[in-house]
């Protein structure tokens, strides 16, 4: 499957949520990175067909998705940012309901596998109203995976999950991602770094970078600095430069910063990671969501 965004843009009133975008998705896992309000959810909703672009078109295998309609949606698995479920239904009933909506016949086996995959087998008979936030999210992931979709669009899939569940989710995506297009929007950099083949950086509705994680890291090689420091110096530096992380160990304090020039004479160039890419492009702390 091939998904192409040809000059799609979207505005809400006077606010331009998404500037004209040109993106092509082929099989692989894509991480959509950007701060809050960058246009990630708008792009996701456009790709799902919940929103109509103001300009441009989205093509799935060369056909406009609006014209494909149910055929396109049959290949689609979607997890919205805050999915809610009917509190009176059990987890299993929710999956059965969505299996019907996806036109899956005799879904029992598939549902059992998915419940096992998201670790909800023991809670399958429990009413969703009694589920925790993390359990609901896992149920959402199972819902998105119903029908083995060729295109998986996940909006903040790991928000609200504990580290163990996040690891499990990454493994799931790693397992099932082969031969599919998986697009996951998040501002948790480590999720993208662990599982994505490609990164798309969105800022204020503009795509400011789209490449493999390694290529993006390579772009900022020589711009990431580790500076051993004391507390006073670190505090002053952080006050003056938004783009900095402090790494504490038992005896030392290390300022990790991203800048074109070394911030201190004794700064040492460091191996860039995706968080540095995030810091470089978005010029802010990468810890506004959850710690990686």
């Amino acid at each position: 499957m091939k998904l192409e965004c040809k000059g799609i843009s979207k505005a809400y009133g006077k606010k331009q949520a998404l500037a004209p975008l040109e993106l092509t998705f082929t099989e692989g896992i894509y991480g959509l990175l950007g701060p809050n309000g960058a246009g990630k959810t708008t792009l996701m909703h456009l790709l799902v067909g919940l929103l109509a672009p103001d300009s441009g078109e989205i093509l799935a295998d060369g056909m406009e998705i609006g014209k494909l309609g149910a055929t396109y949606r049959a290949k689609l698995g979607f997890l919205p940012q805050e999915p809610g479920f009917y509190p009176g239904f059990t987890g299993e009933e929710i999956l059965r309901y969505f299996a019907k909506l996806k036109g899956i016949h005799q879904p029992q086996k598939k549902i059992a596998t998915l419940l096992e995959l998201v670790n909800l087998t023991d809670d399958r008979k429990k009413k969703v109203g009694q589920y925790s936030g993390g359990m609901k999210r896992r149920l959402g992931i199972a819902t998105a995976l119903l029908g083995d979709p060729a295109l998986l669009i996940l909006d903040e899939p790991t928000a609200g999950l504990d580290p163990k569940e996040r690891m499990r989710f990454r493994n799931i995506i790693g397992q099932i991602g082969f031969g599919k297009i998986v697009i996951l929007a998040t501002h948790i950099v480590s999720d993208v770094e662990c599982i994505s083949d490609h990164c798309i950086l969105l800022k204020e509705g503009h795509c400011i970078g789209a490449d493999t994680a390694d290529a993006l890291k390579e772009n900022i090689r020589g711009k990431v600095w580790n500076t051993p420091s004391d507390e006073t110096e670190a505090e002053r530096y952080v006050m003056e430069h938004a783009c900095a992380n402090l790494i504490k160990s038992d005896t030392t304090l290390m300022i990790r910063s991203v800048s074109d020039a070394p911030p201190f004479p004794h700064s040492v160039a460091a191996e860039p990671n995706l968080e540095d890419v995030y810091l470089y492009y978005f010029n802010q702390s990468g810890r506004d969501g959850e710690s990686p």
Binding site: H45, V48, G49, L50, A70, T71, R73, A74, L76, F78, L79, P80, E82, P83, G84, F85, Y86, F98, K100, L101, K102, G103, G140, T143
Partner: peptide, 13 residues
């Protein structure tokens, strides 16, 4: 509940 997005993303939704 925000579930309409999930429903609308399905073939029979």
């Amino acid at each position: 509940y925000g579930i309409h997005h999930l429903i609308l993303a399905t073939p029979y939704g």
